[in-house]
Design a protein around this nucleic acid. Structure first.
Lengths: 140, 140
DNA sequence: CAGGATCCCGTTGGATACTG
DNA sequence: CAGTATCCAACGGGATCCTG
């Protein structure tokens, strides 16, 4: 696959990185990465990414594995992930057709931070639940 | 207040990733942490968390700082974050009233994985954009 | 100032039926 | 099998007005 222009730098120091020690999350910068957070926070996308983490899957395999996802949302999520370059789609034009999905290098690299987030969630889910119950009790 | 122990490591390889090729994101496990991912992927919550990362803020300060958020969504997001135990709310019953929000220890601990995710997004945003344009070109 | 209460519209997403 | 198309209900979220 051709790259008309290579990525300029891993850390975009070109424009507005004027801040000394980084907010890195200031509003104006955030607009750039908010779509990414949206995809991560998407109800299904990260489950798909993590499912594909252990190898390619067919459409129906994913549908069975993820449990609760509708074929519509699976299709839409896969399209979105493909559009973002996180997964690739391989069609085998047999009858019946066979389509396999797998993570791209980009998708693979996303697993690490997402896993970190998942680990955080697992570690603190008890704390969160407790806070929620306490809050709900206070408010009635 | 809640976590006397320091964070063990940025990449928690210890906890529950014990399974050999285990997803750690399997559906049954995912139902527990999906709400957390939802909060992270929320349009505003992480911007609020990151804004509060550099110190407490008043309601109107947050509103001005985040830019684009409506007072309704700011209120709702703050309530959600408070309910999850990520931020605390301090009312000074003066006239006019003053309300300050700040991260709890739990909220502070969330910044790390979110920052990692933000870093990933910053690093790969160019690649993603390229993939999107390529995809859109292919599909028409 | 901080936020509650409404209204209202665009999007999300499930269920179902159909197709190559 | 791997989708596409359609309908429709639920939710998200902005704009506006009101209050302690």
């Amino acid at each position: 696959m051709d790259q008309p222009q290579e990525r300029k730098s891993l850390f975009p120091s070109d424009t507005d990185v004027t801040a000394p020690a980084e907010p890195a999350f200031a509003s104006h910068r955030c607009t750039r990465i908010t779509p990414v957070l949206n995809r991560v926070g998407d109800k299904w996308s990260m489950q798909i990414v993590m499912a594909l983490g252990s190898g390619p899957r067919r459409f129906s395999e994913l549908k069975r594995e993820i449990d609760g996802i509708s074929q519509r949302m699976l299709t839409l999520s896969l399209r979105g992930l493909e559009r973002d370059g996180l997964i690739s789609r391989h069609v085998t034009p047999t009858i019946p057709p066979r389509v396999d999905y797998q993570l791209t290098d980009l998708g693979l690299s996303l697993r690490e931070p997402v896993r970190a987030l998942g680990a955080w969630a697992s570690e603190h889910i008890g704390c969160i639940r407790a806070a929620q119950e306490s809050f709900d009790a206070r408010e009635g």
